[in-house]
Amino acid sequence: MSTPEPSPRPPKIPESVLVVIHDTAWRVLVMERAANAGFWQSVTGSKDTLGEDPRDTAVREVGEETGIHIGSPAVPDTNLRDWAIRNVYEIYPVWRHRYAPGVTHNTEHVFGLRVPEGTPVVLAPREHTRFEWLPWREAADRCFSPSNAEAILQLPRFFD
Rank of each mutant, 00 (worst) to 15 (best):
P10W: 12
P11L: 08
I13V: 14
P14W: 03
V17Y: 02
V17D: 02
L18E: 02
V20G: 00
V20R: 00
I21V: 15
I21W: 05
H22D: 04
D23H: 08
A25Q: 15
A25P: 03
W26K: 15
L29H: 04
L29P: 05
M31V: 06
M31E: 12
R33Y: 11
R33T: 09
A34V: 01
A37F: 08
A37M: 07
A37H: 14
A37T: 09
G38N: 11
F39K: 10
F39S: 14
W40C: 10
Q41S: 14
Q41N: 13
S42I: 00
S42F: 00
V43N: 02
T44P: 01
T44V: 12
S46R: 00
S46Q: 00
S46E: 01
K47W: 05
D48E: 11
T49V: 05
T49R: 14
T49Y: 13
L50V: 12
L50A: 15
L50N: 09
E52A: 08
E52R: 08
D53A: 15
D53F: 09
D53S: 11
P54S: 03
P54Y: 05
P54C: 04
P54L: 05
R55E: 11
D56C: 07
A58R: 08
A58W: 05
V59A: 01
V59K: 02
R60S: 01
R60A: 00
E61K: 01
E61N: 02
V62D: 02
G63R: 10
G67P: 12
H69V: 15
I70F: 09
G71M: 11
G71C: 09
P73I: 10
P73F: 11
P73A: 13
A74Q: 14
A74H: 07
A74F: 05
V75P: 08
V75Y: 08
P76A: 11
T78K: 14
N79K: 02
N79Y: 06
A84M: 13
I85F: 10
I85M: 13
I85A: 08
R86P: 03
R86L: 13
V88P: 04
V88D: 13
Y89M: 04
E90A: 13
E90N: 06
E90S: 06
Y92D: 07
Y92P: 07
Y92L: 03
V94N: 10
V94M: 12
V94G: 06
W95R: 09
W95P: 01
R96S: 01
R96L: 02
R98M: 12
R98V: 04
R98K: 11
R98D: 11
Y99V: 07
Y99E: 04
A100T: 11
P101D: 13
G102E: 09
G102P: 07
V103F: 05
H105G: 00
H105R: 06
H105C: 01
N106P: 00
N106S: 04
T107Q: 05
T107M: 08
T107K: 14
T107I: 12
E108V: 04
